[in-house]
Amino acid sequence: MSKVRVVPGLIPALVAGSVLVMVLACFLGSTELSPSRIMMAFIGLGDRADMLVIWHIRFPRTLAAFLVGAALGISGAAMQGLLRNPLAEPGVLGVSATAALGATFALYYGLVGLWPFILPISAILGALLATGVVAMMAFRTQSVVTLILVGVGLSSFAAALMSLLMNLAPNPFSLSDMINWMMGSVANRSFDDIGLAAPFILAGLALLLWQRRGLSALTLGEEAAAGLGLNLKLQRLSVILGAGLATGGAVALAGAIGFVGIVAPHIIRPWVGHDPARTLIPSGLMAGMILVLADIVVRLLPTAAEMKLGVIAAIIGAPAFAYIAAQRKGAVHD
């Protein structure tokens, strides 16, 4: 007899946890600062150097990690709900890589000089292109394998094009730039960078949250959901657009960070009765926490060159992905 439980107070607990890890992230770093100096700096009363470290380095970086995590966690959970598949995720489906391609194109062909918002917009256009392709495939086939292969194809294609851009760009970018975009990082992010991406991320998340009730209905399949009164076209469009905006914004801010959009919803689902709608907000908080923690690890590891945030995310996430995929052998549509 397996009972379905919904953990009470989950969201408040995750909010508290998120605040806690973000404060922790501000306390830790290469410059040793005592808690009292950090507190003073936080409320604007510390000395100039301390304030600089907290307000210009640690806090923006932490906020960026959390925002990117939240965007990817909620996008992942929403795509999983729409496609009725726990392996759907911006990274796996090639959405992040295509967004990174859009961003690098804007960056290295000088478009960003025209207007800074061209960076997130290009990333979002890349993301929308991929979500559109994936969604079109998904409505034609119910095979998970097909979808993931399409994602692999999109990712490889985006990586190849990026490599081509690298060679042809008027101001050629280095291999490390490309790795930054393909693996993702929040090092040296400022409030200005966050300001460019955040409006798109928040708009996308608002759209996904507004339309989340339909994801519950889709549990029964598309035809039954339509019978329940769900407007399928509007639902698909909202998730494609919402996930595209949020993922594109996240990639513009931090590059392509994979797997966190699979891991967070997978942890959350049993706590919310497996309801896709109720998975969204907790997944966002959980994914935000995971990336903030991963970024702490990145900063504390004594490596010569700083590790990429996406490397840590993949080291944790890729095995989890494989595990979830293996668990699904008895599942429906494979």
Binding site: V4, S216, T219, L228, G229, G273, H274, R278, V332
Partner: peptide, 23 residues
């Protein structure tokens, strides 16, 4: 079913057109 919802939640989906949200 795509997800192992509780029996109660599946039945509650019948109220979707009435604006019901699960939980």
């Amino acid at each position: 079913l795509a997800w192992p919802l509780s029996v109660f939640d599946v039945v509650a989906l019948g109220r979707f057109a009435h604006g019901a949200s699960l939980g």
